[in-house]
């Protein structure tokens, strides 16, 4: 008996159907909330309002609680991911070798902070803890490519390649 409004819809009907299929085995099971959100985010890429409403109705969990869980765990995101995923390592070694300057530069030039997606939808940014290349700090990954000793002056030339793709 969903009477949720459609004014927030950003998703294709096929994506919503997919969420419905994911949820089916868990109907009426509030205890499966995190698992379902996890699978839904894998399928859709993020957890927009209408997905959270569907999960709330399907699992019989108040929407306030669904959003509470989504906003608590940094793994969950309510924004669509960019075409390319940037990860900046902020582990100890990378941090002392300038990961923070890198993050500041990304904020300045691309207007994205950790967890954000750039306005043009090209890049999303996450902070990670150690990618196992401490000797090359600061380390940044873009999609499956790893870049070492990334100082702020190298940033634009690296990202330029992806911006065109």
């Amino acid at each position: 008996m969903s009477n949720g409004c459609a004014c927030h819809t950003q998703l294709e009907p096929e994506q919503l159907n997919e969420v419905g299929r994911i949820m089916e085995p868990y109907r009426g099971q509030p205890g499966s909330l995190i698992q379902v959100l996890h699978k839904a985010q894998n399928a859709v890429g993020y957890l927009p309002r209408e997905v959270q409403v569907m999960v709330s109705e399907g699992l019989n969990v108040p929407l306030t609680r669904v959003y509470g869980v989504v906003s608590f765990y940094s793994f969950f995101t309510t924004k669509p991911k960019g075409k390319h995923k940037i990860c900046v390592c902020a582990g100890t070694a990378c941090y002392v070798r300038g990961a923070n300057q890198l993050l500041n530069q990304l904020e300045k030039d691309y207007h994205i902070g950790p967890g954000d997606t750039s306005d043009d939808g090209q890049f999303s940014l996450d902070v990670v803890r150690c990618v196992g290349a401490c000797g090359l700090g600061p380390v940044m990954t873009v999609d499956d490519d790893v870049y070492g000793r990334v100082h702020t002056d190298k940033l634009s030339s690296i990202l330029e390649k992806y911006a065109k793709e």
Binding site: P62, T64, G68, S71
Partner: peptide
């Protein structure tokens, strides 16, 4: 359920 703890 109009209110609940949000964020962290």
């Amino acid at each position: 359920s109009a209110i609940a703890p949000q964020e962290r």
